[in-house]
Every structure is written in structure tokens, then in C-alpha cells.
Amino acid sequence: MADKAATPHHAGHRDRLRARFARAGGDALADYELLELFLFRSIPQKDIKPLAKDLIAKFGDLGGVTAASIEKLCEVKGVGEATAIDLKLLHAASARMALEGALDKPVISSWSSLITYCRTAMQHEPVEQFRVLFLDKKNRLMADEVISKGTVDQAPVYPREVVKRALAVEASAIILVHNHPSGDVTPSAADVEITKTIVDASKPFNIVVHDHLIIGRQTTASFKSLGLL
């Protein structure tokens, strides 16, 4: 009886959860259970089911947890800096894998992969972020850069800087992307105006603006599909 009392009650739970994952894969597990599995190595000797549930409750879903800043993650009781860095590593790896699905491929044939990458990278950003995707002459994705970050509802964008970067990387075309932390992907008057300004600034250099995407928590809007470009 003494041995049983000395065994942590969560030890068997960890083994059972691992076995479920090995048997049925990630689709058989809830978000908090997948998070538990990931955190087992970060926090090896503690029942972390309550912590996993607290993280999901605070940040909304698994993507929201990994996209949260280190500072915000550390505000949750039980999360130290090392654990927060591990979670950020998961987000970075997810974004990198999503990017690999679109990199060096014509955007027409890899459009869904491109959207997946943009959503993985930006949909949970708490402030507005403006990103530019640079394409070569064959419309293959060469690179992307975050041009600016701002407040919850605004990121300052300078058209000349966008064009300057496109020329520097020898891009023939660009796709503009920014997120709306509010979740509403309806283009604002400012969104429409900055797009027009960038298009006009790019024309003398034969740089084509293919689209402007707005990333929300649940959906994505395309200026081209909306007839705004």
C-alpha cells in the first residue's frame, strides 16, 4: 500500500494518453490533451492537465496558446520561461512547416498552402502586423517579411519601404498581407487607400501587386476576390 501511495496519480494518466495518441493519432485527442502531451517533457513531474486546460481557456485554442507572447504565457500560473519558450518553438515550427508547402512554388498552384502559412503565422497575433510576400518572375514565393507591427487596429506602412524591399530582393510581384485582431476581415477605408498607394508606387518599377489578404481569427479576405484590386 505504501508503494501505491507514493506513486503520483498522474503517472498512469500520462501513459494512457501516450497510448491513445499512438493508437488513434491526434484527431482522437482534445486540444488540451495534445497540449498535455507536448508539455510532458517540459514539466516532467507534475499533473499538468489543469495547466493545459487553463492555457486553452485563457488563449482560446491550441493555436492561440502557441502564438501568445512569452510574457503573456508566463502570466499563467505554472508556466515558467523555459516552458513558454518551448510553446513558442512549437508555433515557430508549425509556421516553418506551413511555409515549406508554399516556398519556391508558383502561388497559383500552392495558393491554399500560402493561405495556411499566413493564417498559421498571423491569425492569433494580438496586434496588427503587415507582411509582404515577395515573388519571382515565375510567381514563386521567394521570401516574406514583416514590414511593420502596430497597435490592435493599426500598423504603420510606408509604400516607399515596401517598394524598396521588393527591389532589394529582385521581386517581380508582391502579395500584401495583414491581420485584423478584431476578427472582422472587412477591409477598412485605410486598407483600401494604402493598397492603392502601394500599387501606384510599384507600377513605375514593373512590380505587380497580386493581392492583399486580410487574416482574421476564423476567415481570410482577398482584395482580388472582393474586386478591390
Score class of each variant (00 low, 15 high):
110 S>H: 00
181 P>N: 07
189 A>V: 10
47 D>P: 02
160 R>P: 10
44 P>M: 02
219 T>I: 13
3 D>R: 15
103 L>S: 02
44 P>L: 09
106 P>T: 03
228 L>K: 02
146 V>C: 05
52 A>I: 05
25 G>L: 05
27 D>W: 00
166 A>D: 12
110 S>K: 00
174 I>F: 08
188 S>T: 15
102 A>E: 01
208 V>M: 06
228 L>Y: 03
166 A>F: 11
26 G>A: 15
166 A>W: 07
97 M>N: 11
110 S>N: 03
181 P>K: 09
89 L>W: 12
198 I>Y: 10
196 K>I: 10
55 L>A: 09
66 T>S: 06
227 G>I: 08
94 S>R: 15
154 Q>I: 05
43 I>S: 03
55 L>W: 08
31 D>K: 00
199 V>Y: 11
149 K>F: 00
157 V>M: 04
121 A>R: 11
212 H>N: 09
224 K>D: 12
13 H>M: 13
65 V>D: 04
25 G>F: 07
172 S>D: 14
5 A>C: 09
203 K>W: 06
35 L>E: 10
57 A>I: 09
119 R>W: 02
150 G>L: 10
111 W>I: 00
168 A>I: 09
68 A>G: 00
128 E>F: 02
204 P>L: 02
15 D>S: 14
222 S>V: 04
138 K>Q: 12
198 I>V: 14
201 A>I: 02
216 G>F: 03
86 D>N: 13
198 I>L: 11
199 V>I: 15
51 L>M: 05
5 A>V: 13
221 A>E: 06
158 Y>H: 13
111 W>R: 06
43 I>H: 00
221 A>R: 06
203 K>S: 14
200 D>T: 15
69 S>N: 04
176 L>M: 12
211 D>E: 12
42 S>C: 10
